[in-house]
Each structure stands twice: as structure tokens, then as C-alpha cells.
């Protein structure tokens, strides 16, 4: 049987997702009996031309991690889309924008200003913002464009499957690969993890009080003397996003006494992860007086954007507009972008 051709690519990412592939350890070697890697810039010496030479649709599947912010990233993922029968968004950044996506809370100009003009880490010499076309000491060179916004992979190209996580844990990656290579792959658009929220698989779910959860003060993990490992973290006042986050990881963070921060993203049917998270957190506050509520929120959640949208800001409805759905089922969302750079 001919081996299936597979590619890997990284966009705006930390490299953790590449580690996650390597984390498969011996299983990766087993997988290589079935697949043939044709593109993996981080580990092997392939060039763009190697991909361009392939026929359209020749690659069986390409796993892309990282969010899309640069014109180079957009060009290559569009190229890979053409060459691949299946595109898998690998990890939280390509799934939802991830941590780089938090940059969407800040204007592009402010970012450039901070890093290239007025940031505290800069020496006071001539500012050098990354101009796409510039010359330096008589050498002209091209830099990728820095787009107005960070985008998740499916806001740039059509995505067939998602493997969630920051980074995806080995059991999830293995499970996803098995599903992809099986004779009956799941329907397009599936997030290859559990279909229930994390609480469903969390060992501490049984420790929630029968009468439900009411919280009078939220506590941040680094400010808590001792976290009780045998009681639901949410009940202890730690903002654990287990109720709103897709399960499948096996509650790894909670086992390490850290609350869930939501890297697996929302469940099917949830339009906006942060809004759902905010809505449930607001619902369990045990106070009726508006001043008390405000105090509880101010003291316990000083960074709501970072808390509720740590991985999903580009996919949220914030800073976005809803476009009409021509199929008349559901509307799409699309990030606001600079017109000139959008195509």
C-alpha cells in the first residue's frame, strides 16, 4: 500500500505544538509506517518549492499549528490548502487564534509602536519598524506584511478537522490520528476530542455541592496558600473553565492543581467561548447587590479578556461582524481587517 503523504507547518506559534508531535515518541515511528512526511520545516529541510512541485491534492493531510498574522503565513497555508486533501488545525492557535490572538485586543499600530519605537526595551536609536519594503545599508529586502489582526486558521482557509489543546496532549493527538486514518473519518468540521465539557471527565466533579455552586470571592492560583487537591477548584473560588471547555485532555491541569484555562475551546453549539465562560462565571456569583458583584469581579478577575479569551479572541464575536449566511442556516463571523491587506 502506498504511504499517505503528510505535511506539518507552523504559523504564529511558540513551537509547543511541534513538541507535541515529537511527544508521540515511539508512536511517531509507528505512524511513519503508514505515512510519508513531505513537508515539516521545523524538523526537516524542505523548501516552499518542494510543496509547489506537488500536484494539487497530492498531500493526504497537513497539520498546521499557529495563528495567522503575517502575509507569508497566509500564502503558505493557502498553498498547502491547495495541495492537501485534508487540512487539520493543530493546537489552540490555529484552532481559535490562541495566545497570539490576544494581540487582537491591541491596535496593530500600538504593537509596532511598543516593539519598534517606544518600548522600554529599545535603545534610543533610529526606530526601525518592519516595513515590508525597505533598504538597509543599500540592501533592499522584503519582509512579510504584519496584518491588522490575528486570525485562526479557518478564518483564512477552509479547515477539515481541529485537534485542540495548548499544546494537544499525546493521547488526543493519537486518538485524532487514528480517527483520521480510519476507513470512516468523522464528518468535516469535527473537533477531534470529547463532546462533553471537561467537568464530565474530571475526578473532582463529584465534590461539587449538591445544591450547586455559589461563589463569594474568586481567588487567583498564585495568591492562594494551599489548593485543596481533593475539592473542585471552582468550588474553592479558583476560576476553572472546566464547565465551558471541551474535554478530552483527561483534566491534566486539574490533576496538577491548576484550574482549566480553556485551551480546548468551546463545545459544539457555543458561538463564543469567552461569552459563555463569562456568562457562567457571572451566574455563580453569590451576591445580589450590584456593588458587591462589582467588587467580587474587580478583585477576583483583574484581567477579564485574558481570563475568558486566553485562547479564542480571534474566534470571538468581539471586534467582529456577522456576515449573512447565504445557505440560510447560520451566519459566519469574520475578523475586521485592513481592506488593502485582506486578500
Amino acid at each position: 500500500m502506498e504511504k499517505k503523504k503528510v505535511g506539518f507547518y507552523w504559523c504564529a506559534s511558540c513551537g509547543g505544538c511541534e513538541e507535541a508531535v515529537v511527544d508521540l515518541a515511539e508512536d511517531l515511528l509507528t505512524a511513519l509506517e503508514q505515512i510519508d512526511i513531505v513537508f515539516w520545516p521545523v524538523a526537516m529541510d524542505f523548501k516552499r518549492e518542494d510543496v509547489e512541485r506537488l500536484d494539487d491534492g497530492e498531500i493526504f493531510a497537513t497539520f498546521i499549528n499557529g495563528a495567522v498574522r503575517l502575509s507569508e503565513q497566509e500564502e503558505i497555508v493557502k498553498l498547502l490548502r491547495r495541495k492537501s486533501r485534508v487540512i487539520v488545525a493543530f493546537g489552540a492557535c490555529s484552532h481559535m487564534g490562541g495566545i497570539p490572538g490576544l494581540a487582537n485586543g491591541v491596535a496593530r499600530e500600538a504593537i509596532l509602536d511598543y516593539y519598534y519605537r517606544n518600548g522600554p526595551a529599545l535603545e534610543s536609536r533610529e526606530p526601525m519598524p518592519p516595513d515590508p519594503e525597505r533598504t538597509w545599508k543599500e540592501h533592499g529586502f522584503h519582509l512579510p506584511r504584519f496584518y491588522e489582526n490575528v486570525r485562526a486558521l479557518d478564518q483564512v482557509v477552509e479547515v477539515d478537522y481541529y485537534i485542540p489543546g495548548c499544546a494537544p496532549p499525546p493521547n488526543v493527538v493519537k486518538g485524532a490520528l487514528a480517527q483520521l486514518l480510519s476507513d470512516q473519518p468523522p464528518p468535516s468540521g469535527t473537533v477531534l476530542a470529547a463532546t462533553h465539557a471537561l467537568c464530565h471527565e474530571c475526578e473532582l466533579n463529584d465534590t461539587k455541592p449538591e445544591e450547586g455552586i455559589r461563589i463569594q470571592a474568586f481567588r487567583r492560583p498564585h495568591l492562594v496558600d494551599k489548593i485543596d487537591p481533593h475539592t473542585c477548584l471552582l468550588v474553592q473560588g479558583l476560576i476553572c473553565l472546566g464547565p465551558v471547555t471541551r474535554g478530552g485532555c483527561g483534566a491534566l491541569c486539574i490533576k496538577g492543581r491548576m484550574p482549566c484555562t480553556g485551551c480546548f475551546g468551546p463545545l459544539d453549539g457555543v458561538r463564543d467561548f469567552g461569552a459563555a465562560a463569562l456568562s457562567f462565571v457571572a451566574s455563580i456569583i453569590d451576591a445580589d447587590d450590584p456593588h458587591d458583584i462589582e467588587r467580587i469581579l474587580d478583585e477576583g478577575i483583574p484581567d477579564p479578556l485574558g481570563t475568558f479569551y486566553m485562547y479564542s479572541l480571534p474566534k470571538s464575536l468581539l471586534f467582529q461582524k456577522v456576515l449573512p449566511s447565504n445557505g440560510r442556516r447560520t451566519a459566519r463571523t469574520e475578523p475586521r481587517r485592513e481592506k488593502a491587506e485582506s486578500r
Partner: peptide
Amino acid sequence: RRCSGCHVCIAL
């Protein structure tokens, strides 16, 4: 099929 038993709704 979707409920994770997270308890959020109960007290509300």
C-alpha cells in the same frame, strides 16, 4: 448528550 454535569445551573 451535551450536559457535562458541571452544576452551574443548579443553584441558579
